[in-house]
Amino acid sequence: MSDEIDVELEQKVADYYKSIGINQGPGDIQYRLILKVLENNSDRITEFADIRKYTDQFADRGSIGSKIKTIFQLEGLVKKVKRGGYKVTDKGLMAASFLKSTTTFYKKVKRMSDIIERMP
């Protein structure tokens, strides 16, 4: 894996998007973590265990498997290459790039709201 995923940050970002009414995609911690792992493993096959390493604290095995099937596979974000093994597609990488921009937006909003909060 090229770099570690900051699960705590991803959780905060997802919570923020949920708080503004975006419950799916950027506001879904499972979606975020799965896509992050897939992006990090873009040059090789992502094993189901690679994803579960991050998602076990948020969801059970079944719901992650179901999410991969119903969202990632169905929308063509990943390609199943073997049993329990997936490869991210170009569309998936595009979604990962969008996810990055949602993190940037969150950081920008958070920084500004912190400043405003400290203003008397």
Binding site: M112, S113, M119
Partner: peptide, 22 residues
């Protein structure tokens, strides 16, 4: 610098009155 930062972050509705004016 602080004012510039506030204007750059234009995506948020800032209470002009309470933050910029002081």
């Amino acid at each position: 610098g602080l004012l510039l930062l506030m204007f750059i972050t234009s995506s948020i509705t800032i209470s002009i009155h309470r933050t910029v004016l002081p």
